[in-house]
Write a protein that binds this DNA or RNA. Structure first.
Length: 525
RNA sequence: CGCGGCGUGGAGCAGCCCGGCUAGCUCGCCAGGCUCAUAACCUGGAGGUCGUAGGUUCAAAUCCUACCGCCGCAACCA
């Protein structure tokens, strides 16, 4: 293992009932920015993702399609990964809960919790539908006047044996943990929610078994039962890094630095999960980050809708990626939808943000710099070797600026980080060009115009570094358009602050067509 | 009284916690400028009862009270 500080992060694992939509992607994007940023900061990053397959609904869905459940899961996992790959999500491992490795390690874990005395046998009573072969919640019972929402047949009161996890025993310890670790649940609003929930309602022991299911992980100490999907799903976070079969790797990365989850499953991660770990003698994760949701803005109706299959308003990421680009997709959601709270998607908003900030501001800045240097200097700015560069933004304290961005990124306020880059850095650089007008200056004082361009290009270098976690491909294109000394792969976040002379004259290395670079972000018409 | 969030010029937001310069920003709109650039860029302008009604204060978008409206969560919806 390396001596670098390590950074282990996960995203929630997804049900492969259907393909991922833009909301699912939102979470992965937020996590990906963090992972990329941490790598630039020199961390030994491990980024875990996966699919949650041991649920009855998955086997039902497979059966409906006439497929073997495992084959169905494998195919869905392939499709999920195809989307994540297309979005440049830089995960290190993708785990399927139907994998033998996960099942094996999962059984080891639950056995340990059982041995430690936190699992006991009891019976679960509730409203059961014979058609669905599952219990319905009290709310479902009431909403449907005692009938099954699917079968319209009467629900029957039924009790069956089951195993309980003694969650209630951890209530005080959890509250103490929240108190001692104020950052454990982020953002703060979610933390308040959980704390008040536990203080007001308390925690009950939960049923962690299902009886008579074929699909799922059998409980080692009573194989007639399978493990409740949540108990099993959460365990990916440790089986994915070797719990139970690769002790060294597990010890290296655990406890997790950040679990990225949706705000709807906060309680599982903030209450159940730490309790499970403690019950097995392991440490709780360091931080759980519950991000907001993406809703759809219905432009005709002027309303905001939840994304759902039943409403038929699902937008698949691939639709946006193939129409525009992965970076356009990334930029929109990271810039326009606050990660800590909710955001909205609409095609017209997408067009606005893309045109205004990516095409007109960033892309155009690159174009004008490249063209000016090519036309007037043949692509090389003479006598710029060993010249001290300056920031082309008057009054900007670069170190302070980059430091503020760092704080935003570490708190997952990506929208504010991007806003700052555009407003406080890119726009002023465009203004700088306007003010010094090198296209005019070059006619009277070629050396002065050359200095203006030299400094303006520094902005592009800095911006590309700062944007690397957000829009990696475009950032690379910008950076590699010039002969900057440090290779792209070796660029650190801190390099954004460093203004250093280069041994060579600044020159354009981008591939030009008729002396011009094709627009980085062609405007959407 | 289940919990939580929101309501600021046409649209989207910031400001509110720790009241105080002419309520700030982006998009859109209008008028100029520039012409290096992706009809892009730059400058200026119009447009606001800061949800409603009270209260506290020399002073409230900002604090207090009530009400109205919208939304999310409510233990297998990312």
């Amino acid at each position: 293992m390396t001596s670098k500080p390590r950074w282990f992060q996960t995203t929630a694992i997804d049900y492969p009932n259907s393909r991922p939509h833009i909301g699912t992607a939102f979470e992965k994007l937020g996590a990906d920015v963090q992972a990329r940023y941490r790598r630039m900061e020199g961390f030994d990053v491990f980024f875990l993702m996966g699919n949650d397959e041991n649920t009855v609904k998955v086997s039902q869905r497979a059966a409906a399609l006439g497929l073997d459940t495992q084959a169905y899961c494998d195919d869905m996992a392939r499709q999920f990964r195809a989307v994540w790959d297309a979005l440049d999500i830089s995960y290190d491992c993708f785990i399927q809960t139907s994998s033998q490795r996960h099942k094996h390690c999962c059984r080891k874990f639950i056995q340990k919790v059982y041995d430690n005395g936190y699992i006991y046998k009891g019976s679960y009573e509730g409203w059961f539908c014979a058609g669905c072969e599952e219990f319905k919640t009290e709310k479902q019972y009431q909403d449907n006047n005692g009938l099954c929402p699917n079968h319209r047949t009467a629900l029957v009161r039924r009790s069956e044996p089951c195993y309980f996890f003694a969650l209630s025993k951890f209530q005080d310890r959890l509250l103490a943990h929240y108190q001692a670790n104020p950052d454990f649940i982020q953002p703060e609003s979610r933390r308040n929610e959980i704390v008040s929930l536990i203080e007001n309602e308390g925690l009950r022991d939960i049923n962690i078994s299902r009886y008579g299911e074929e699909w799922g992980i059998p409980i080692p100490f009573d194989p007639q039962f399978t493990i409740y999907v949540w108990f099993d799903a959460l365990l990916t976070y440790i089986t994915g890094i070797g719990y139970g079969d690769d002790e060294a790797t597990f010890r290296h990365y655990w406890p997790c630095d950040m679990h990225f989850i949706g705000k709807d499953i906060t309680r599982f991660h903030c209450a159940l999960w730490p309790a499970m770990l403690w019950a097995a003698g392991e440490e709780a994760p360091k931080k759980v980050y519950a991000h907001g949701f993406v809703y759809l803005k219905n432009e005709e109706a002027g309303t905001v809708e939840k994304i759902s299959k039943s409403l038929g308003n699902v937008i698949e990421p691939m639709e946006v990626i193939s129409k525009f680009s992965a970076d356009a997709f990334r930029y929109y959601f990271l810039r326009e939808c606050p990660f800590p709270s909710d955001g909205e998607f609409s095609w017209s908003r997408f067009t606005d943000v893309y045109n205004a900030e990516l095409a007109n501001n960033l892309g155009n800045l690159l174009s004008r710099c490249l063209t000016l240097i090519t036309k007037n200097y043949g692509g090389i700015l003479p006598q710029t070797a060993n010249v001290q560069p300056q920031v082309a933004v008057p009054g900007l304290d670069l170190a302070l600026f980059v430091g503020e961005l760092r704080e935003h990124i570490e708190a997952c306020r990506y929208h504010l980080a991007l806003q700052k880059i555009v407003l406080d850095f890119l726009t002023p650089t465009n203004q700088y060009l306007e003010e010094h007008a090198p296209w005019k200056l070059v006619k009277t004082d070629k050396a002065a115009a050359q200095r203006v361009l030299f400094h303006a290009v520094q902005s592009l270098r800095i911006a590309s570094i700062l944007l690397k976690p957000f829009i990696p491909r475009s950032a690379e294109k910008i950076y590699t358009s010039f002969n900057f000394a440090i290779p792209w792969n070796a660029v650190r976040w801190a390099d954004a602050v460093v203004l250093q002379p280069q041994p060579e004259d600044l020159r354009i290395t981008a591939e030009l067509i008729d002396g011009k670079i094709p627009p980085l972000f062609p405007r959407i018409g």
